[in-house]
Design a protein around this nucleic acid. Structure first.
Length: 550
RNA sequence: GGCCAGUUGGUGAAGUGGCUUAACACACUGCCCUUUCACGGCAGCAUUCAUGGAUUCGAAUUCCAUACUGGUCACCA
């Protein structure tokens, strides 16, 4: 009885060899220095911002070198799998235009290195495991969950390092004959990798983000194939897939750092060259005095769906993440405002090595700036898209009054320093609702200095009767000044500030009365533009209605 | 507990022995501009880089120790 017999017993139908697969998936025909990266999420039905962050890095480094960015679905954990997860991932990547060059979606495979869904690659993994068994680098392990738990407790008691290694790796010493018999008897087993490492040996590992690290060699006999599904574990699938798909750079979260020595040993066992690694910091959040991983349950902003629901423009979200990825991004972008994030040269060394704190305030700021630089059409289209999904009533309204809405959105926009009113599309309605009669039904008015009803009525009546004019901004404002003087207020702010006691108030107070009377708000964009868009009829109508209420 | 990593203002951070009396940005505060708000302008916001020690003419930057924070130690990825 030999290892070969054991391998054939476990994988009787696997005929292709490692060499066959090497031929099927040859080296990619790419120029020197071109990067191949991948986004490899597990389909749990949730798009975490940390995952998206990694995908963004993958995408940038691939595009920086005109390389390949592909998507691989890591669905080896059938218990956690969620049906709609793949669709969610694809939709999110598409929404943000982080489009993979190779992927598998809805039965369609794009690219020559597929399948790109791990559960469809089971024969490939089996061929590689078979080889490992044949050469004595993998073996079946019959230990039960209980046995393993006992082992761990024992080790903990004796203050030893926990794990299945060295003399604790019981099933290592099972003879081939015994193993074959037990398998034939239907005993449940996993396949473990047989490590040749020595924990006391240090190896130097170079991570592109974290630099040179001194790590202990792996000596754990890691499980590489699960008992029930015969699917590989992450560790093994990573080695096989990233080798066959010729990934040059693996971007993954730093939670993988402790297992990198396992992966390196497995690559070595096959004689493969490991990829370069970029272990990214976790996205964390401040809570009280401590920081913690941003969490799916506690933090809505951990999910990419949050940003969609709030209506943040995609580019604003990307840019806010870029500032975390490389903190010099913002400076670079200010110096090169016409360039996009894709022109930015990403540097893993510049990536923060501690946790990255995702700051919603920063996002708001970036988003305000971003939206302020858009044209009225772009804002309108963004608003249209968002309201269609999340605010049907408003959607109908802005569709009905398309040009009118664009003009509203254009107030103080086409100037060197446009207004920064909106951080997201969900904020727009709350700031311009008063421009729509359908939405304008104020119950309170934000009067400021002048609150006397008779005075307000007087101001409004005289204004309508004598001074109403919206044909030209200068004329409009001059009229307001005339009104101001006529009523005993001061039309010159400088003078008013010098001698406030000489007047009933200033032109600012008069303007505010008009502003509040027409919009109910004390803070709005340029009043002249608002009045021009509202038109005389609606202005009079609103004032009349207000008088009735006063 | 073992192993690994990190620790610079309220926040993201620049910084790898003298150019740092610590860049830039966000937030905040004050003033100015101004018909409101916003925008914009100006100013303020760490005498100090977790703590202690060492090396050095000189340290945020090198070394050692301590503390704290995070990651990991699953048939999860």
């Amino acid at each position: 009885m030999t290892n070969k017999d054991l391998a054939d017993l476990i994988f009787p139908n696997i005929t292709k060899t490692v060499e066959d697969y090497e031929k099927i998936y040859p080296e990619r025909d790419l120029p020197e220095g071109v990067y191949v990266t991948r986004f490899a999420p597990s389909p749990t039905g949730y798009m975490h911002i940390g995952g998206f962050y990694q995908a963004l890095i993958d995408y940038i480094i691939a595009k920086n070198s005109n390389g390949i960015f592909y998507l691989r679905n890591e669905d080896t954990d059938k218990k956690r799998e969620v049906e709609t997860a793949v669709q969610l991932i694809m939709e999110t990547l598409n929404k943000y235009k982080i489009i993979p060059d190779e992927y598998e979606y809805k039965e369609e495979i794009i690219g020559n290195y597929g399948p790109y869904i791990q559960s469809e690659r089971i024969e490939i993994y089996h061929a590689f495991i078979k080889r490992l068994i044949e050469i004595g680098r993998a073996y079946p392990c019959f230990c039960t969950k209980e046995t393993l738990e006992d082992l761990r407790h024992n080790q903990e008691e004796k203050k030893m390092r926990t794990g299945y290694y060295g003399r604790f790796a019981k099933c290592r010493s099972i003879s081939i004959e015994e193993a074959i018999n037990r398998i034939k008897n239907g005993e449940s087993y996993v396949i473990r990798f047989k490590s040749l490492g020595d924990f006391n040996n240090k190896i130097i590992f170079e991570d592109l983000a974290k630099g040179r690290l001194s790590l202990s060699e792996n000596d754990i006999d890691e499980i590489i194939m699960k008992s029930d599904t015969m699917l590989p574990t992450y560790h093994f699938a990573h080695v096989v897939d990233d080798h066959l798909m010729h990934t040059t750079h693996v971007v993954r979260g730093e939670e993988w750092l402790p297992s990198v020595t396992k992966h390196i040993e497995m690559f070595k066992a096959f004689g493969f060259k490991p990829p370069k690694y970029i272990h990214t910091p976790l996205i964390i959040k401040k809570e009280g005095d401590s920081v913690r991983k941003i969490s799916k349950r506690k933090d809505p902003e951990a999910s990419m769906s949050y940003y969609e629901e709030k209506g943040y423009p995609e580019m604003a979200v990307i840019e806010s993440l870029m500032t975390i990825i490389n903190s010099n991004y913002e400076e670079w972008h200010n110096a090169n405002p016409e360039k996009t994030f894709l022109d930015f040269k990403f540097s893993p060394k510049k990536m923060s090595s501690s946790g990255a704190l995702y700051d919603l305030e920063k996002l708001n700021n970036i988003s305000k700036n971003y939206i302020s630089k858009l044209t009225k059409e772009e804002v309108y289209n963004g608003l249209l898209k968002w309201t269609k999904e999340y605010d049907k009533e408003f959607y109908e309204l802005i569709t009905k009054y398309e040009d009118y809405t664009k003009n509203i959105l254009n107030i103080e926009r086409e100037q060197k320093k446009p207004r920064k009113d909106y951080a997201s599309y969900s904020e727009v309605k709350g700031q311009i609702f008063y421009m729509y009669d359908e939405l304008y039904n104020p119950s309170t008015y934000e009067w400021v200095n002048i609150t006397d009803k008779e005075e307000i009525n007087k101001i409004l009546n005289i204004y309508i009767d004598k001074y109403f004019d919206v044909t030209d901004k200068e004329v409009w404002f001059n009229n307001i000044k005339l009104l101001t003087d006529e009523l005993g207020y001061c039309s010159n702010m400088k003078e008013y500030k010098e001698n406030p006691d000489n007047y009933k108030g200033s032109v600012a107070d008069i303007s505010t009365v008009l502003r509040v009377a027409l919009t109910s708000k004390s803070m709005t964009p340029d009043l002249y533009e608002i009045m021009r868009l509202l038109g005389k009829d609606r202005i009079i109508e609103r004032i009349k209605k207000l008088e009735e209420e006063l």
